[in-house]
Amino acid sequence: MAVILPHIEDSNATSYIPPSGEYEKFENDAHYEEKVREWGLSTTREVKKEFWYKERTHQRLVKIKGYQSFGEKAVHYTLVIEFQDGNLSCIHSAYLKEMQSSNFGKEIKPLAEVSSEENTPKSEEPSKKAEPTAGTVKSKPVKEKKEKPAKIALPEDKVRFTGKVKQFAMSWNHFNEENDEVVILENVRIETDEPIEVGLAWCSHSKTLKKFELTPGDDLDFNGKIVKKSLPKGKDVEDESLLLDVSVPYKINNPSKLSKL
């Protein structure tokens, strides 16, 4: 079957979903490469700059201009892509990844439907309880309510942090199915007018951070954006010192303006 090459004229046949409001833009090439690899959109040594956008009747080349995170834990991403004619549109990262396959299927749900399903809470059906037999009454054990840790109101924008390097660890990246090196931070605090104690947090050990030659015990001052995202544990790691037994509930994205105290 002949492949339909992309044409600017195909813009009339493309259904655009423009981004609403501001979206995250890449700070530099290193940040772009880090995010594209995290989404599993490039496994080659040189990260791809263009990707195929495919519909039933045509396909076009696009570039990734930025992204927006969503979901309760901010682990899902809506990418903002730019077509050759300058039009912007949103697309789920996993959906764009599927489009790169040579056998990309035609019967795929539209992005709007996929996003709607992910954002719509699933209703839980009440479990059916067996009715007690006549003449028997079973008392239910009283369960002690565990006190939940107080929720932290996380700022949406970039803010200033202080913290200490606890250790380095390996974390499983399910997009490229391999372990990524991360930095575990302790005593993390958001330095606002009323400082917020965070505790443990983690971030990717990117090329930018490696330039600082961090070591455990380093006290840091930096800017970044914090989200609720637990650290995935590494798999098949020979060095047990690179595995964590404790939960690290927060991730700091794109740390910048870093300095050692």
Rank of each mutant, 00 (worst) to 15 (best):
Ala2Met: 02
Leu5Lys: 08
Ile8Asp: 05
Glu9Lys: 08
Ala13Gln: 12
Tyr16Glu: 00
Gly21His: 01
Tyr23Asp: 07
Glu27Met: 06
Asp29Thr: 10
Gly40Leu: 09
Ser42Pro: 06
Lys49Thr: 15
Lys54Phe: 03
Arg56Ile: 13
Phe70Met: 06
His92Phe: 13
Tyr95Thr: 08
Tyr95Arg: 10
Glu98Lys: 11
Glu98Pro: 01
Met99Thr: 08
Gln100Asp: 09
Gln100Tyr: 05
Gln100Arg: 09
Ser102Trp: 01
Phe104Leu: 11
Gly105Ser: 15
Glu107Tyr: 12
Glu113Cys: 05
Val114Ser: 03
Val114Tyr: 07
Ser116Phe: 11
Pro121Glu: 06
Glu125Cys: 12
Glu125Phe: 15
Thr136Pro: 01
Val137Met: 10
Ser139Leu: 15
Lys140Phe: 06
Val142Ala: 08
Leu154Phe: 14
Lys158His: 02
Val159Asn: 02
Thr162Ala: 10
Gly163Gln: 00
Gln167Gly: 05
Phe168His: 08
Ala169Asn: 05
Phe175Cys: 15
Glu181Arg: 15
Ile184Pro: 03
Val188Cys: 05
Pro195Ile: 13
Trp202Tyr: 05
Cys203Lys: 00
Lys207Asp: 07
Glu213Thr: 09
Gly217Met: 05
Phe222Asp: 04
Phe222Ile: 09
Leu231Pro: 10
Val237Ser: 13
Asp239Val: 06
Leu244Phe: 03
Asp245Pro: 02
Pro249Asp: 10
Tyr250Val: 06
Tyr250Ala: 02
Ser256Ala: 14
Ser256Phe: 07
